[in-house]
Simulated assay, not measured.
Amino acid sequence: MKVLIAPDSFKGGLTAKQAADAIEVGVLRAMPQAECVKIPMADGGEGTVSSLVEANHGELRHAEVTGPLGKPVKATYGLLDNGQTAVIEMAQASGLQYVDGSSIQAGQATTFGTGELMLAALDAGARRLILGLGGSATTDGGAGMAQALGVHLRNQAGDEIGFGGIALAQLDSIDMTTIDPRIAKADLLIASDVTNPLTGPNGAAYMFSQQKGADAQLQQQLDQNLAHYADIIAQALQIDVRNIPGAGAAGGLGAGLFSFTPGQIRPGVALVLEMTKLRQKAANVDLVFTGEGRIDEQTQFGKTPFGVALAAKQAAPTAPVVALAGSVGPTTGVIRPDGIDAVFAILPGVETLPVAIAKAAENLTRTAENITRLVIAKP
């Protein structure tokens, strides 16, 4: 029996690789002779670097960059294709893990370190950049990223504006003459499933800045500043980024990438599926395991398990696709003939969250073993 194992991470408990390893242990307990094909997955956010490095036998690199609050942080990125392709998670440089959720920090957080991480990858020889958006602490429209790449964002006095979405109110002009020339030549793919515009009720500030610490007053101010930022970009670069789908991703980093780089946005799961060659590896499998921390009705909207299921069914239409989760909500629209066939919660009973996280690997292994035994027992 050939088994494809392609889970996302169980956030707070297991990385995608750890989850895949735990499922494999269960499968082999039930059928020691099974051939397991493990592909740790991601959706363009956390885990994308490790997933693509593992699938493509790449290497991890490290760089010290500017964190969202201006302090140095250590970030990791991946190199594939003999160093020609770099995989970057913006959260490694500009993520929520570096802030405490205060309004002051939400207004000041910068993507400068993300730009520095892009430059580090170019310095390492990469000519293709895959940039995953997600988990950002920022709402600066990618202004910090642009500054790191060499773009000058100036106020009326001709001085460089400061960091963060608050500082965008001072923006008066944009000077692109000193941007790193390698940016224009780079093949830049933006991995994101967010389709929100830059501004307005569904924009970066109103939809996402609250989780970064912004109160109602700051949300309004950030939205106004992003609108002003879009106006200056339109005047200077003749690009209207305000309503481009995905411009609001990662606190408006999408807008910055559309404005200052040749980046093209791709759905995160689709890009990872392509880069891991999951469809090819799923050919002739007899059983598919996927999963993540929670599966519910939202899983069908760009989440990893659903993307894995659709791709696997195309390659192996008769193979059952089983999704494992720490918790399961309503699954209307998730279980369907061309996708996920069944969803299982891995908890054996009522447990506190800390216990469930601590036992995630054990619970995954046990559940995968029992499901595999059921599949092989089928006449």
Rank of each mutant, 00 (worst) to 15 (best):
L226G: 06
R242V: 14
R336T: 15
E369I: 02
G200Y: 11
G141T: 10
A312S: 11
L171H: 10
S9T: 01
G13Q: 12
G70E: 10
L96D: 05
G251T: 10
Q92K: 10
L133M: 08
A236R: 12
A137G: 06
D180I: 02
Y98C: 06
G13S: 15
G251I: 12
G213Q: 03
P354S: 04
M31Y: 01
M275A: 09
T276P: 07
T15E: 01
M145R: 08
S103N: 14
K74F: 09
G256W: 13
F208T: 14
L374V: 09
G158F: 05
K212V: 13
L96Q: 14
Q224G: 08
P7A: 08
A186S: 13
G339V: 04
T48I: 05
D100P: 00
A360K: 04
A216E: 15
P320N: 07
G141V: 11
T110N: 09
P197D: 10
A214P: 09
G125E: 01
A216N: 13
Y98V: 13
T372M: 11
H62A: 04
Q33W: 00
E59D: 02
I88D: 01
T318Y: 06
L28Y: 05
A323M: 03
G254N: 14
L188R: 03
A204I: 12
L218P: 04
G132C: 02
S136W: 02
L198Y: 05
M31R: 13
Q210S: 15
G307M: 07
T85V: 15
N155S: 04
G113M: 05
Q314M: 15
I23Q: 00
L60S: 07
S327P: 00
A20P: 05
A204T: 09
G329Y: 04
